[in-house]
Every structure is written in structure tokens, then in C-alpha cells.
Write a protein that binds this DNA or RNA. Sequence first.
DNA 1: TACGCGATCGTG
DNA 2: ACGATCGCGTAT
Length: 212
Amino acid sequence: MKLLPSFFQDTSTVELARALLGKVFVYETSLGIISGVINETEAYNEEDEASHTFGGNRTPRNEVMFWEGGHLYVYFTYGMYHCMNVVSESADYGSAVLIRSVIPVEGMEIMTKYRYGDTPIPVFPLTGERGKRGSKKNLCNGPGKLCIALGITKEQNGANLCTKDSKIYLEERGYHFSEIVTTSRIGISKGQEKMWRFYAKEEDLKREEKWV
DNA sequence: TACGCGATCGTG
DNA sequence: ACGATCGCGTAT
């Protein structure tokens, strides 16, 4: 069952960032289902100097951050990488949660192809040249890496995660982390005082026997 | 129209 | 510690 709009809209962005840990990100692609447990996030909102939307700054690039919670915001950075965010709160308030890492669940073979260039769909930059074959741990542990592994580009920017026929969505599957760490965010200069990064260690991952 | 920088990553 | 590489925002 897909997470509903209320899940994304009825809490603050910082609370949502925490609540997203343990949820499963799912992408139904033409090659098969790709999914992973979210284990690292960061919150960004209009009151935050590090946010694209600081002070209500609304541009073509960050437009999706102002849509209602439950959309996907994808942007391009460092001239090489995409980063993916889950839009939060209500329409016309610019806020989102950056997904920094997931633990692969389904479709690791597809992720490996996307990361290392064995795919017949050669869409992603630099996938063939770099690095060593991904272990489960190394495949999606970073905001740029996970977009390559999951096949997320600007084409998916603005996708609605909550419609009946959406191919990209989030689910509750009973995954649970025993310990959540709260820290300052990575790669920002302003807003370092905000403790808006949340992560869990992979070895803490547990799965309940039953789930809703 | 021009320029400087960045919510990164893998290698050294 | 550093270079790759380009879209976007800000300034001209």
C-alpha cells in the first residue's frame, strides 16, 4: 500500500525526514521493480538558509518544492549528479526531504547495471568508467549514487508518489531501525547549526514479523 | 550574455 | 585533499 498524501503533508518537514527512515522507496521500471529501505535523509524548508527555497525563493528549478507534499523533486548538481527529494507539507510552501541513502531490497541486478553501465538504456553519466562493482552496501549510499542506481533523473522531477497508477512511490513494509542518529547536514555552508540530518546504520535494520 | 558556485563521488 | 563538469542564480 502506497503511503498517502497525509503522510507527507500532515507533519513538519523535519519530522517527515525522521519518519521516512525505514520506509521503502519503490520504482516500477520497464526492467523490473527496484526498491530500497531509506536509511539517511535531510530536511530543507523556507526558513533554512541552506535550502533552494530559502525566504520563499521560487524559481523554475525548485518549483516542485512548492507543490503539495507527496511529489518527487529531482535536481542536477555539481554538473554530474542528480539528487532526489520527497516534497513535504502543503502547496506554496517550499520544503522537501533529501534522500541521501537507501539499502537495496529488490532489483539489485538492475541497480548494478545502472551504476556500472551494463544497461541497454545508456542514460546515466559516468556509469561505466568509475569504481568497482557495488556491494549491497556501496550501491546506493549517497544522494548522487542512489539516483544513478535507481534510474532517477530530471525526467522523474515532479512525479506524484501517491496516485493509484504512479510507478514511483513509498511503502511501509515493517522495517525498523533501533537507533537513529541526528547530525548537521552534509555539503552545506549556511545552516550548519540545524541538526536536520537523520541516519541509521545498516546493521541496525530489523524487520517486524507482521506489518500493515 | 557572462561568470562563479554547488544538498557529490571516486581516486589518490 | 582534489578534480570532473554544467545547470542555475545573480550580476552585468
